[in-house]
Amino acid sequence: MNNNSLNANCTVEVLQGVAYSPVFIVGLLVNAAALRAFISKRDSFTDTHIYMFNMVIADSAIILVLPFRIYDAFFCLPKTYMCTVLLYVHFVNMYVSILTVTTVSVQRYLAIRFPLQVRVMRRKKVVACAVCLFIWALILTICVVFRKENYPDNLWTCFERCKDRPLRLATIVILDVTGFLIPLVIIVFCSSQVITVLLKADKDQTGTESERRRSITGVISANMIIFIVCYTPIHVAFLVNFLYTPPPNWHEVHTAPHVFLLISEWIAATNCCFDSISYYFLLKQDK
């Protein structure tokens, strides 16, 4: 099959190309700066630095996929197994980021709830490295098991699935429940507990310490809100597209659920820019 037949379904999507371009530029600049800053501090890494560095790697990998998506929007990539790889690179790193954020939230909660035990805990950096490796191994294993979901036969264009071939129920359960709902509950619980403790403690503090606690509270609140805003739409869209039955002429029209999915994918991609809030605060603490 030649490239023209592989690419026959593709149409120019100017809005997608325009929408992803600033995400790529801002994300590239922010994460390049973060990588440089983290590498310069590699000799003084803490376990938190390791988790954040893992997020930078995940965000950077997503950014590397965006030029292909922008090119596809304007010129159309041939529908090959390269598209399968690009889709998995994007989603592997999205869920690596989600699970890393979840781990950081748990770490913050334990540090507040059991400060003495956490403080004397040994080999925290080794544990952090092991957790990050486990997250990557888990997500990659899931992708291998469900690799056929994004084979070219199931794709309408390089970055879009055929509307009449939704993800399987097992895949939806893993993505929405294991990959999002459970992390969401953990993040909201841990973040709320930490914020409550910090606000109570702030009443008895003045000056620099009080300001520091308010800054930490603000960052944790921002991280939780960004997580909810960026990742809720795409997981709702997965479920909606699974339940929706497309019309017979689905290939000729833009159905509302499919448009919602495309918009939610863009919203999720913007997270690679917003993670800079966490990087900035962590590195600022080290000055």
Rank of each mutant, 00 (worst) to 15 (best):
Q16N: 15
Q16Y: 09
G17V: 01
Y20K: 04
Y20M: 09
S21E: 03
P22N: 07
P22T: 01
V23P: 00
V23Y: 00
V23L: 03
F24G: 04
I25G: 09
V26S: 10
L28A: 14
L29H: 07
V30T: 14
N31L: 03
N31W: 01
N31V: 02
A32K: 13
A33V: 12
A33T: 11
A34R: 06
L35D: 08
R36Q: 13
A37C: 07
A37S: 13
F38H: 10
I39L: 15
K41R: 15
F45P: 10
F45K: 15
F45R: 15
H49G: 08
I50S: 12
Y51C: 10
M52S: 15
F53H: 09
N54I: 02
N54M: 07
M55F: 02
V56M: 03
I57M: 11
I57L: 12
I57W: 01
D59N: 15
S60D: 08
I62K: 15
I62Y: 09
I63K: 00
I63S: 01
L64Y: 05
L64N: 11
L64W: 03
V65G: 10
P67N: 02
P67R: 00
R69G: 09
I70P: 04
Y71E: 12
F75L: 11
F75T: 13
C76I: 01
L77C: 06
P78C: 09
K79S: 08
K79R: 14
K79N: 13
Y81L: 12
M82K: 14
C83P: 05
T84C: 02
V85G: 13
V85K: 10
L86E: 00
L86F: 01
L87E: 11
L87R: 14
L87C: 13
L87A: 14
V89G: 13
H90P: 12
H90V: 11
H90I: 06
N93V: 03
Y95L: 13
L99Q: 11
T100Y: 05
T100N: 13
T100M: 13
V101W: 05
V101Q: 14
V101G: 15
T102K: 07
V104E: 05
S105M: 00
S105K: 02
V106N: 09
V106M: 08
V106W: 02
Q107F: 08
L110Q: 06
L110C: 07
A111W: 00
I112W: 08
R113W: 02
F114M: 10
F114R: 15
F114Y: 09
L116F: 12
L116I: 11
V118H: 06
V120H: 12
